[in-house]
């Protein structure tokens, strides 16, 4: 039997497949349902200090089968109501809050808040491509120093996963800066900055205008960015785990990311309308490993790297 267990910043996970932030994670009830799908961990929607209502619709549109453009606008009830309501410590799988803010100080306040409430690790959203704020998450992970400053400010309170944007010339440099600042892990990729237009209505397809691209079309981009991050971290002598995501819709897609050196993965878009699809992917990974004769994830993790040395 394949052993899927992993350790992430000292946290033991049953398997390397996590629910990505912003998908099916807006209420305690739906988070409980996702815990029952067999996910290794659940990342919550992005939490900000103050409540955010989200953008006007359309917020999410399927522009080709399995490929989506979205601008939800980071809807959330704010840190205080989140902490009152969300089960950070009582579910059967670890719950990892995702934090979003405009400045390192605000990020630090969020990190302190969730750490005090029992979170063992947090993901920091350095990379959402569509906040309207002048100095928002979109810019942070495009500047290695700014990203490192947020990591340094938050990691005083608890271990953090730095979630990076693919919208940069060299994602490896940003990942190394975050690792050097003490990030417990790097996750990538967030959605790609995008725009789509309806020709009949002659206007942008999303209520917010701009949005982020996700789903099957971005998988090859995610794989390449993860490989670049893994190579850059190796080159700089960091063994920081990399959590891969972008367009994963099957166990084979999970394998693709692990072959590129990902330590674990997150799944979002492909669960739209089918939360229990998570169980099939988790089962499928074990079946693939059994068929291949692999007992541990480490038996095949990073096998693609030799092609790019």
């Amino acid at each position: 039997m394949a052993n899927l267990r992993i350790t992430l910043a000292g946290l033991d996970l049953d398997n390397p497949i996590m629910l990505a932030s912003g998908i099916l994670d807006s209420t305690p009830g739906i988070l409980q349902r996702m815990a029952e799908t067999g996910a290794g961990a659940l990342i919550t929607k992005s939490i900000s200090l103050k409540p955010r209502p989200g953008y006007p619709g359309p917020t999410t549109v399927e522009i080709a089968p399995g490929t989506w453009i979205n601008a939800m606008g980071l809807p959330n009830p704010g840190l205080e109501e989140f902490l009152n309501e969300f089960p950070l410590t009582t579910l059967s799988v670890p719950v990892i809050p995702n934090l979003v803010a405009d400045t390192p100080d605000e990020f630090a306040k969020l990190a302190a808040g969730v750490a005090a409430a029992g979170a063992k690790i947090a993901e920091i959203n350095l990379s959402c491509p569509h906040p309207k704020a002048a100095y928002g998450g979109s810019l942070t992970a495009q500047d290695p120093e700014a990203a490192a400053a947020v990591v340094a400010a938050t990691t005083k309170h608890l271990p953090v996963i730095a979630k990076l944007t693919p919208n940069v010339a060299d994602i490896g440099t940003v990942a190394v800066a975050c690792a050097r600042a003490g990030a417990a892990a790097i996750s990538a990729i967030n959605t790609l900055a995008a725009l789509d237009v309806d020709p009949e209505l002659e206007r942008p397809l999303l209520g917010n205008g701009f949005g982020g691209l996700s789903g099957v079309a971005i998988r090859p981009i995610g794989l390449r960015k993860v490989l670049e991050i893994v190579q850059a971290l190796n080159h700089a002598n960091f063994d920081t785990p990399v959590i891969g995501m972008g367009g994963i819709s099957s166990a084979e897609d999970v394998v693709r990311y692990l072959l590129c050196g990902a330590h674990s993965v997150q799944i979002g878009t492909s669960l739209t309308g089918d939360p229990e699809h998570m169980s099939a992917i988790t089962r499928g990974l074990a079946e693939w490993m059994d068929r291949k004769g692999y007992r541990e994830l480490a038996d095949f993790r990073g096998r693609i790297l030799e092609w790019f040395s």
Binding site: L24, D25, S26, T27, I30, G57, T60, G273
Partner: peptide
């Protein structure tokens, strides 16, 4: 917020 089973706010 989405209507199509992505965000979970209507749960």
């Amino acid at each position: 917020a989405c209507g199509i089973g992505l965000c979970g706010i209507c749960s």
